[in-house]
Design a protein around this nucleic acid. Structure first.
Lengths: 350, 350
DNA sequence: TTTAGCACTCACGGCTTTCGAGTGCTAACA
DNA sequence: TGTTAGCACTCGAAAGCCGTGAGTGCTAAA
């Protein structure tokens, strides 16, 4: 159904107001806040029509109107006015990105923190994965006479390590030899190519006690599996307390369990399914049964950094979400995050 | 004030019952659940005396009694019966400790997860720090023609790394040389000894472009600062929904903000101040104004792993906490956590 | 010192009442 | 035909009002 210009105006006004106030909005309230040049009775008639057409809903007979999912969708797709980040907000984001972090995970959670802070909703990031991880270098380094740490450097500067303990003291040369052997054998190889079969085959050729090889090859094998999958970083969960739809303790409980289920969980599934899109896209209502069940919406966007690392970031919140602001924030973030890895030259003067 | 044996018995009964039920306990209720051999009137008299002496409180005139802080303290110090972990619970802990983790942080949060799961409260761990970190090895590894990753291995198998990008492509030999130089210079040195002054002095001697050296020495310098301080890992925050004192949305909000303030925050301060004690110790009420304000208690215990890494772990919950169970759980954990680092030989057969 | 008995207190849940924001409908008007 | 003033109606939310019952403290007798 095509909406008349006036209907569009009214629908936009209702969604805007409802997003601000969280209260069902009535005809009089609209007139106060928007220049429409008609009376409340006319607005009521139009609202009745919009309800009839499925854009609005009434919590009960004598209350104001609330946008339906269709209403929100129309709003997001064509009615909403773009939100421009303030200079302050942009600065926040750039600062977070310019900072030098001790570990990559820290960086990711800081960034997630910023996004949730700016939007006032909950932010969820996936750790980035590469489609073509390969091993750049392997090194075994002695920690004490009976333990060493195995370090694997992947492309994009990803570093993985694990400490291993052996049953009796080893000679320094033995460790070096093994280190060189592994490095020669595996450097340059794509992780995906390292199936367990190939590893087993390889293992049979090395003249070292088998339990040590088990540890080493287990690590490599897990690495291959681990890097295929991503993890979830989530922050700003307590922001929901700022939104009245979560004044009910059970809703809050529900939300936190949903969102903090993290890696094992439902959020991950939703992100996995979400289509890859550099532009932020909105998932709500019928798009996903889980979100519908919890009365939530998500705005999801891809991000990429370095040469080949890609991940997703999302904002989770009530369906009554400030989509304009959320979308702008994710947009700005995804445009600027690219240089997070390695690009240190810009901020050495700071 | 010395308590008669019967008063002790009654106080213990009240605290036990209250911990279970979260309801003020009345004289009749006690008689039902405990063998006292006296009438409810007698119990009432004793309760009045215990209240007079400050061990009990009444929410209002005609309600049952609730333990006061003094009551809890007496209970914890001398009345409480020790809780024995079930075989199942012990197995949970041992499994978590036996598992091989990709990264140390993951291990810590898994362990924290287990502790919060078993106790049904919120667990807070500090990342472990060593009093004498020293550098075992430094290595620069090429990632692409214009970036490399700097890896620093500390004792106890702690690995830190940062990716660095340079303005123009470098020669492989230059990187190797620099890598060797750094390694020769710093391997074996205690991190605490590396003040900024010393680093600056050293920096002047190296014939490499200064912005690159800045990046490298900044990293080392931050490393020294970073390892002095610890971070906070926290899990099981949603467990509070299982306790009726948090049925009030504001209490819950308050609690989550308190506990998730994490690194910037109050919890960290409390843990810092907590006396070092291998045995779990209880902090509540007047011990700490912050906890008092939020109506919370903590049980804190040290843990140590490897040869020289030490941290603290704590359970945060309502003052009405199952202290016996929490203490036993932390005890068991701190006894078994020691081998988390490196001790892989026990579970290769699994 | 203990205990039976009893009057008293007070939070809690359920019920009713009141209030008001907001509606839909009708009839008049442009 | 579209707009608007007017009005009766609806219904949720807040406030007020018991009745109930768990639990107490006190008194007097054992």
């Amino acid at each position: 159904m095509e909406l008349s210009e006036r209907k569009e105006k009214i629908l936009r006004a209702i969604v805007d107001d409802y997003i601000m106030s969280a209260e069902p909005v009535g005809s009089a309230y609209i007139l106060e806040n928007h220049e429409l040049g008609v009376s409340s009775a006319t607005v009521r008639n139009e609202m009745a029509a919009l309800e009839e057409a499925g854009y609005l809903e009434k919590p009960h007979t004598s209350s104001g109107r609330v946008p339906s999912v269709l209403g929100y969708r129309t709003y997001v797709n064509s009615l909403m006015k773009e939100y421009s980040l303030t200079l302050n907000e942009m600065a926040h984001i750039r600062n977070a990105l310019a900072h030098q972090y001790m570990e990559f995970d820290k960086a990711l959670s800081s960034i997630s923190e910023i996004v949730s802070f700016l939007t006032n909703y909950t932010a969820v990031f996936t750790t980035p994965v590469s489609s073509k991880y390969n091993i750049r270098q392997i090194k075994l380094i002695s920690v004490d006479p009976q333990s060493f740490v195995m370090i694997v450097v992947l492309n994009e500067g990803v570093v993985k390590n694990r400490t291993m303990r052996v049953k009796k003291p080893y000679e320094a040369e033995v460790l070096d030899k093994l280190s060189n052997y592994l490095n020669n054998k595996f450097a340059g190889i794509n992780l995906n190519a390292l199936t367990d079969d190939i590893l087993d085959e390889e293992k049979a050729l090395v003249p070292v006690e088998s339990y040590i090889l088990d540890m080493i090859f287990d690590f490599i094998s897990e690495l291959a599996k681990d890097t295929e999958d991503y993890n979830i970083v989530c922050s700003g969960t307590t922001n929901i307390f700022n939104h009245p739809e979560f004044n009910d303790i059970n809703k809050t409980k529900d939300f936190l369990n949903f969102v903090r289920s993290g890696n094992s969980g439902e959020i991950k599934e939703i992100l996995k399914k979400a289509s890859s899109n550099a532009e932020p896209s909105v998932i709500m209502g019928d798009d996903n049964p889980l979100l519908k069940e919890h009365g939530l919406s998500m705005v999801v966007s891809d991000y990429s950094l370095g040469n080949d690392l890609k991940g997703k970031m999302a904002i989770v919140g009530p369906t009554r979400m400030d989509y304009a602001k959320v979308i702008s924030t994710l947009n700005y973030m995804s445009q600027h995050i690219k240089g997070l890895i390695g690009e240190t030259d810009e901020n050495t003067d700071k």
